[in-house]
Design a protein around this nucleic acid. Structure first.
Lengths: 126, 126
DNA sequence: GTCTTGTTCAACCATGAGGTTGAGTAAACG
DNA sequence: CGTTTACTCAACCTCATGGTTGAACAAGAC
């Protein structure tokens, strides 16, 4: 919205498109030219070129020169950025889930769980 | 574009927005109501409600009922979907990189690497 | 019942994304 | 040189998205 401020937004946004994910999948098997990449899709070469630009600006691919060709190469490093973000919050959420489980188990022994309103387990959100 | 066909597109798309990623981060610390979630942002409650709808449709959060409140809960499972996709292609890309490294190392012993045009290492893309 | 609180729905507006076509550039080929 | 190949840039169209405001609904509080 702000014009895609941060790197992470650009990466997620780039991979939100099925065509672009498909291109990444293809590129994981080896570098390819724009024409080669365009072949499977029923869109213009220009559209593919645009997709590649998006992937490039997200840092997912880089392009070199080989005569008139512009071979596209997949850069795997950015994936780490996403993985780290995802893992971080997934782990937090799962830990919280474990704790909730424990709390519920404890409550089962003491009283009815209906008494409890587990909006916060022991954490803080602000 | 097609109207966000698959699950993966919805998840990536949902997380492409910094505000929504921020909400996910907040929710990783514990469930929260719409009002609580809206507090830090300078947008209307309705806008926040919309963001939550997007996160919900992506399967990232679920909403329950507590009187007039609609507590929002982070569902960590969908993260796996992303992680799997990412890891799959990252690994392929990295393996390819290893192979390229090996090829270059071999070439160093034989001839000048400038002779080689390594558009494909040994793979296929079609 | 009416009021207040919490949230969603509906209509609208501005911007951006993905698609198109047509022209322009870059480098090999003849 | 002009032509062909490979690609990008520019202008345009359409629709989705994120924001707005105002009204509606749902449920406790008075």
């Amino acid at each position: 919205m702000v014009e895609q401020d941060d790197r992470l937004s650009r990466v997620f946004s780039a991979l939100a498109d099925p065509t672009r994910r498909d291109m990444v999948a293809r590129l994981a098997a080896g570098d390819a030219t724009v024409n080669e990449l365009a072949a499977p899709y029923d869109v213009s070469l220009q559209a593919v070129s645009k997709h590649l630009k998006v992937l490039e600006e997200a840092g997912l691919v880089s392009r070199s020169r080989d005569a008139q060709r512009r071979p596209v190469h997949l850069d795997a490093e950015v994936f780490d950025l996403m993985t780290k973000w995802i893992e971080r919050y997934r782990q937090q959420a799962e830990e919280r889930f474990q704790r909730l489980d424990a709390v519920l188990a404890r409550l089962q022994g003491k009283a009815s769980p209906a008494d409890e309103r587990p909006e916060r387990i022991e954490g803080e959100a602000g």
